[in-house]
Design a protein around this nucleic acid. Structure first.
Lengths: 156, 156
DNA sequence: ACACAATAGTTGTTATAACGTATATTATGG
DNA sequence: CCATAATATACGTTATAACAACTATTGTGT
């Protein structure tokens, strides 16, 4: 029984109190497992998950580039220090930064050829990662998981 | 429809590719939301979630204390630097450290009265947090979420 | 008994999380 | 037009994530 397994992992002898704790701990542990696996997948590319996510966003913006602020808004998980993350991508030669002529507060970020190449080279391993780890669930189970997670988030 | 809502959040126009990405992103975003809320709940106690988790573990070990290594093994989410986390709890006067006489490699960690008190004062707010956020799901939905998360983790 | 392997904790280090402050620029309202 | 508020990015700082190397201690095999 899987609850016993989680309790064994946590070396917990008493029932979850409140019962909601079980789902919460499960979420924490499952996310951690997947995030760790993701980081391992991206490590050979010299990127953290957030860096790759940002690079993908910049790449998708095409020749127009994208403002820093918008990168931050579009990242899957929050990055409180977008500036320095972009610093590090600039150092790696994967993006370039240019102040906008129209609004001097704004810095637009552009993908470099090296950045574009790196994004593209990681697409397949990333796809494989997702199929491998999430694919253990059937389509129906995935749909159900999505429904539950949306409910948790949007509280409809 | 909630998929459109996630896509709007991610400013994504094309379908999830692979479809597994949707569940993966949902997991990331849901965990982040809950972790952020948890951190906010514990902030008034001057503790991060991992610190509180560690304190709970030490508190549960009673007068015998618990070895550092075991704390690390029992934490819900991995802490790669248990030593320094315990340093910080020691600084806060919440735990004490003593080298074991039986095996000089081992440091046992003991709760202090202040630590015990802090653990206990946070129990109710934490319980409330869990009921409030996870409780949006029915018991059946929670059971289903657990089933899916166990499946993802244990891949049975 | 002794050499080496394994173990537990610590330390050094870099990257990132996270908050708050600083600076420059633009928007707004009178 | 001008003062102030709002906005975007950058910077200062502390805590933590994370890895690897180090030190001391114990376990193991010969």
């Amino acid at each position: 029984m899987t609850r016993e397994r989680l309790m064994r992992e946590l070396i917990q002898t008493r029932p979850f109190d409140p019962p909601e704790a079980e789902a919460f701990f499960n979420l924490l542990k499952t996310e951690e497992m997947l995030s760790t696996r993701l980081a391992e997948t991206l490590k050979p590319f010299g990127l953290t998950p957030s860096q790759y996510n940002a690079l993908r966003i910049v790449n998708g913006s095409g020749v127009e580039g994208i403002p820093s602020l918008e990168i931050g808004e579009r990242l899957i998980t929050r990055v409180p220090d977008v500036t320095r993350m972009i610093d590090r991508l600039v150092e790696k030669g994967l993006v370039e930064r240019r102040r906008s002529d129209r609004d001097r507060r704004v810095v637009r970020v552009f993908i470099t050829p090296a950045g574009k190449q790196l994004v593209e080279s990681a697409v397949k391993p990333l796809r494989k990662f997702q199929k491998q780890w999430i694919g253990v669930l059937s389509d129906d189970d995935q749909a159900e998981l999505n429904r539950l997670l949306y409910k948790l988030r949007y509280r409809d």
